[in-house]
Design a binder for these strands. Structure first.
Lengths: 204, 204
DNA sequence: CACGTAAATGGACCATAGTCCGGTAATTAC
DNA sequence: GTAATTACCGGACTATGGTCCATTTACGTG
């Protein structure tokens, strides 16, 4: 049914060439949005203001980023990419090379730092329709990584379930609540995360 | 500063007498909202439509329930109250009388059932500003209960932290995702919940 | 280079959550 | 019973996320 081009190579990119003006506008928008977020906080930035600040129409904004969460995600993208790169190909214990349980602890610690630095932006990016964040590919990537580590560690139970629970403990909404509302320190969260993982995952 | 009536009894209700028309309107609104939710699903019910269906103005709606989440919560209120009543004063193992760990497992199982039945409504009620659900008194009540059980069980770590993690595993957004998107069965979730608690909480 | 096509654009438009306030009706004091 | 008070009412209004489409602009081709 799909009209594959029957060329030699299957196309890896959905878009052959992003038009120059589109690329320029995307960059302009991201810079404008970044500035607004920096000066007023992610929560107070409206799509209208971003569009006006970037000097483009609202339609352009939504064409490029889909929705508000998409824009926020795009702002996080660079860090996000570095984060994923880190646990896939970085150096141990975050990257490969250390025992699985150790890596899992390192994963959580990095995630806590990530939330510390990008907290509001993360919260804004995850705050869409119910369940949207779970269906997104970023969650899938994290989940797959945790599942892999759990299986590697020899965990006997259902790794997918435990991955959901563990990622739940790192959810930005929760971590921000613990930090700001409950007054837990970052060190406290790190310690508790470590204990949690050690209690659940076998040493290998 | 507060003008306490200096009568004999401290007032237990913030409002001395809800005016008859107000009470009538609240009831009418709840009935109308219940009907709309039943026939179109919580997600598709707008405040405007509820107001029109109830034959009241929008202002009345917001005066009574604060915001959309408040209305959804009010619709859940009866079940919610029964749920809380159950784990505070009900019969074992959900209520008092059983070992703490057993009660905790029962708590989770009831919560999973609760999500099964009231899923969409719960999701709608929890879907507000980031962190709002965590700051709400319902979350505080659940958290306090779980903390109590953990301490009673002789859990050595920080009970508050573990309570957040455990409640995260029961979050309606997550459970609905696991049921609908991941295709996990309710039995599977029950089993995994039980294993999770048994792995983390000492038998007592 | 001229041209045709497909993509990008922008801002008018829509839907919906939430606010505000002049008017009104229920309660209370006398 | 009547007047004063107080709480309630309703719908017009605002703010904001998101859609639509007629118009414009870049790009590949002859």
């Amino acid at each position: 049914m799909e009209g594959d081009g029957a060329r030699g190579l299957p196309m890896l990119e959905p878009v052959r060439h992003e038009r120059a003006d589109a690329a320029r506008n995307r960059a302009t928008i991201l810079i404008a949005a970044e500035g607004l977020v920096a000066e007023q906080g992610a929560q107070n930035v409206t799509m209208d203001r971003v569009a006006r600040a970037a000097g483009v129409g609202k339609g352009t904004l939504f064409r490029h980023f889909g929705d508000r969460c998409g824009l926020m995600r795009a702002l996080l993208d660079e860090r996000e990419r570095a984060f994923q790169e880190g646990f896939i190909r970085g150096s141990a214990p975050f990257g490969p090379g250390a025992p699985a349980r150790t890596r899992l602890i390192a994963f959580g610690e990095r995630m806590l730092e990530h939330v510390e630095i990008q907290g509001d932006l993360l919260a804004a990016a995850e705050n869409g329709e119910p369940g949207a964040r779970l269906r997104h590919s970023v969650y899938a990537a994290y989940r797959a990584h945790v599942v892999l580590l759990l299986e590697e560690s020899g965990y006997g139970g259902e790794a997918g379930y435990l991955a959901d629970v563990l990622l739940g403990a790192l959810l930005s909404e929760l971590v921000l609540f613990q930090r700001r509302e409950l007054g837990m320190s970052q060190a406290q969260l790190r310690r508790n995360w470590g204990e949690l993982v050690r209690a659940l995952v076998p040493e290998d």
